[in-house]
């Protein structure tokens, strides 16, 4: 807490940045009536869910940002000596609440969305909303871990993963059917961000899937996410093994 004012400014600024994103959404709908057939409220629903899941996932895995510098400085050895699994140690080695601003913003946008769209609420829909956000948190935590995994081998080109972390959360803020086949396949089947916002939103809004998937398809979300997390966990362990085998 050496830089208290800077810290508070950071949370405030983080809130502001995402205000810009929300401002852009409103400005788009100031000029246009719909996006791929969806209204402002419906797209705002996607925005809110994505922002909440992304900010929580990012906050919980902030330690992953420090793996690369820790490897370079030798600090990572110390992380490995602690009890708990290596991943837990790495994750808990740093705490940063910079994305608190985005989380607050996400809740505000979600609240706005609920005032705009008509959702026929039921117990299963509440569970769907919570489940979608939890799935999203897990998915983004895994994605931030991927970035750290690469740093066990290389420091070059790691920023390409930004296309999937920041890109993924941005993409999740818009209806999936506006994207072309390549992005759809990638973000439904491989990095399943479509299950964080789009498919749950279809269920909440009682909309049929314009892409023709049946209603139960949304339930595949946690399954594909679990597979993805499993692959990431395997990759993490390979990374740790590689790190040890280099003898450092």
């Amino acid at each position: 807490m050496a830089y208290r004012s800077s810290f508070l400014l950071q949370i405030f600024a983080n809130f502001l940045i995402n205000t810009a994103e929300v401002l852009a959404l409103f400005a788009m709908f100031y000029q246009f009536d719909s996006m791929g057939g969806w209204t402002l409220g419906e797209v705002a629903l996607l925005h809110g869910m994505s922002m909440i899941a992304f900010s929580l996932g990012d906050m919980l895995t902030i330690g992953m940002d420090y793996v690369a510098p820790q490897i370079r400085s030798g600090e990572f050895d110390r992380v490995l000596t602690r009890p708990l699994s290596s991943w837990m140690n790495a994750v808990t080695s740093e705490i940063n609440l910079r994305h608190l601003g985005q989380l607050i913003q996400g809740f505000l946008v979600l609240t706005f969305a609920f005032t705009q769209v008509n959702i026929d609420w039921s117990v299963t829909k509440v569970l769907m909303l919570i489940g979608a956000i939890l799935t999203g948190v897990a998915l983004f935590m895994a994605l931030f871990t991927v970035e750290a995994i690469f740093s066990f081998w290389t420091v070059n080109g790691v920023e390409a993963i930004n296309a999937f972390t920041y890109g993924g959360s941005d993409l999740a803020q818009f209806p999936m059917h506006v994207f072309g086949r390549t992005l759809r396949v990638l973000f439904i089947w491989i990095i399943p961000v479509a299950f964080v916002t789009y498919y749950p939103a279809l269920y909440l809004l009682d909309k049929p899937d314009p892409l023709g998937m049946p209603g139960w398809f949304v339930l595949l979300g946690p399954v594909i996410t679990a597979v993805f997390c499993g692959v990431v966990a395997w990759g993490w362990n390979q990374g740790i093994r590689h790190y040890r085998s280099t003898g450092s």
């Binding site: 246009f32 920023e159 890109g167 941005d170 506006v178 994207f179 072309g180 390549t182 992005l183």
Partner: peptide, 21 residues
Amino acid sequence: LAGLFTNSVFGVMLSSVYLAL
């Protein structure tokens, strides 16, 4: 190369969103 990849993914994404409008 990594940066070009990221810019391109965002370019495709934003273009699709704008076209949908």
